Structure formats: structure tokens, C-alpha cells
Computed example of a mutant assay.
Amino acid sequence: MEFRIESYTGNILNKTKNHLYIEPCKELKHVVAHYTITFQNSENPISEGSVLNLIPDVSGCFVFRFLDEFIVSVWGPTTKVVTVKNDLNLVGSKFFVEFLPGGLYQVLGVDISKTVDKKYELQDFNQELFDEINNRIQSMDSFDEIIKMVNKLLTREMKKNKIEKSIGIWIENIARENLNVSAKDIADSLGFSERQITRYFNRYVGLGVKKYSKIVHLNKAIEEFNSIKFTQIANNHEYFDQAHFNHVFKEICGKSPSHYLENMSDFYNEIYKF
């Protein structure tokens, strides 16, 4: 089974040397950040044995691999750097469903805290959904058809797993507005207990408010690495000072900000998730 990048003819968000970014349908805008198609590119040589260090995104994704056996892997939200083989020019196209924070819960309906920093297969959670995707995809020959199918099926599944509306708004606002809040702040605003807020966030996002906010903050800061100095980044994102920013960056990414900046080609950051 093989799907070529040329089989996608719809609108795109962006295109890089090995990635095509695509918007989901409007019904999924609060669940899916975007779809990604990766493809081979002979004009972008990749050294043998090279790896990609994936920046934590607290979101999760589905990965469709079109091998002899069709596979849909499920990655839970990540809270630390994940190192994977850079196989962009070694394998055919892959298709990714990149969720927004809380989106994985709305499709799977499981306690997301149990999936954090782990990889599964879709059958581990929903055998019927995997079988339906697998059966339908056998008669397809284009990414246009795949995206149409995925839009329809994820919209259906989303309707089965509702998030408490007020909590969903906070999850979305923290990511969109880069808010620095605590479980107590949210509890006070909603009239819930801190324990309830923590339970909701763990179930829907996979981690508590503090850790979630910290990783969102870090992703927002990384977006500015090429344009301003670290001291200004620290100030923009309400770190105490540059030393505090360096400490948080190393805690989550395992490397210093300067190492990241000097070796950016070895890292991959999902800029469309926040």
C-alpha cells in the first residue's frame, strides 16, 4: 500500500522540505491542530543514522503508516523530548493527525494521564475504529480520500466524548493565550475544588495545570528563538530571569537553550499546536 504526496490536491497551511500541513474540517477545529503528510525529498539530503528530537507538546497524535501491514500508532501527550530515527527520506509518505491539548481524549474517550509519554496502537483503545479505517482505506488511492474519511470518523467519535465545557475553555485559553495559571486560579473562577480541576486536567489533557502551563510556555518561547535574545524571551514569557528560563528549558528538553539554538536541525517543534 502506497500513497504519494501528489495525491493530495486540497488547501494547505504550509509546506516544508518534507512536510505538508493541512487544516482539518471546521467541526474538528477545537480537537485537531492539523494533519501532516510527510514525504521523501531527494533535494533535502538527510545523513544516515540521523535522529530528530521531538519537543514536548502535551497533545498527542495518530500516525498512519502504509507498510505491507497498515498501522495506526497512537502517541500520548509528551512531557519530555522524544528521540526518533529521522526516516523522512527512507520510507514513503506517512499521515499524522496532530491533536490539540484535550483533543486525544475527545476522540478516544480514555483517561489521557495513562497515555502520557507512551506509544500504543489504535487497536489498544478502539478495535472497531481501527477496523473501519483499515477496511475503508483498502479501496482508496489518494490523500484527498483519506482526509475526507478521517474528518468524518473523528467528528463522529468526538461527539461521543464530551469535555466539561468550562474546563475545555480553560484548556484552550491556556494554550492560545499562553496563560500562567494554577489549579487554584481555575477552581476559584469556576467554583470547583482544586482536586476537581486537577482530576479534569489529568483526564482530558494528561497532566495537571502547572505542568501543562509550563510546557505550553516553553513551546511559545521556542517560537521566538530566531528573532530575539534569551533575556527578552525570558521576560516575554514571565520567567523570573534568564537563569530560570534556562533551568526550565533543560528540565523539559534535556539540553540548554543555547545547545538547541546551535543544533536546531536536530530538533522538531510542532509550531501549529499552540
Rank of each mutant, 00 (worst) to 15 (best):
L13F: 12
T16D: 14
L20I: 15
L20C: 13
Y21M: 14
P24M: 05
H30R: 07
V31D: 01
I37G: 08
N41G: 14
S42R: 14
S42M: 15
E48V: 15
V51N: 12
V51M: 12
N53G: 01
G60I: 02
C61P: 02
R65E: 11
L67K: 04
F70A: 00
I71S: 06
S73K: 15
S73N: 14
P77L: 10
P77A: 10
P77M: 11
P77C: 11
V81G: 13
N89I: 07
G92R: 03
S93L: 00
F95N: 01
V97I: 10
F99D: 01
G102Q: 02
G102Y: 02
G103K: 03
L104N: 00
V107Q: 01
V107T: 02
V107I: 12
V107G: 00
G109P: 08
E121D: 07
E128G: 09
F130T: 11
I133N: 00
N134I: 05
I137F: 00
I137C: 03
D144M: 15
M149S: 09
V150A: 04
M158W: 00
N161V: 06
N161H: 15
G168M: 06
E172D: 13
N173L: 10
I174T: 04
E177R: 15
K184M: 13
A187E: 07
A187D: 09
D188R: 11
F192E: 05
S193C: 07
S193Y: 01
T198R: 07
F201M: 02
Y204Q: 04
L207W: 02
I215E: 05
I215G: 01
V216E: 01
L218D: 02
K220Y: 05
A221W: 08
F225C: 05
I233N: 06
I233L: 04
N236T: 08
Y239R: 03
Y239S: 01
N246H: 03
V248K: 13
S258T: 14
F267H: 04
E270M: 10
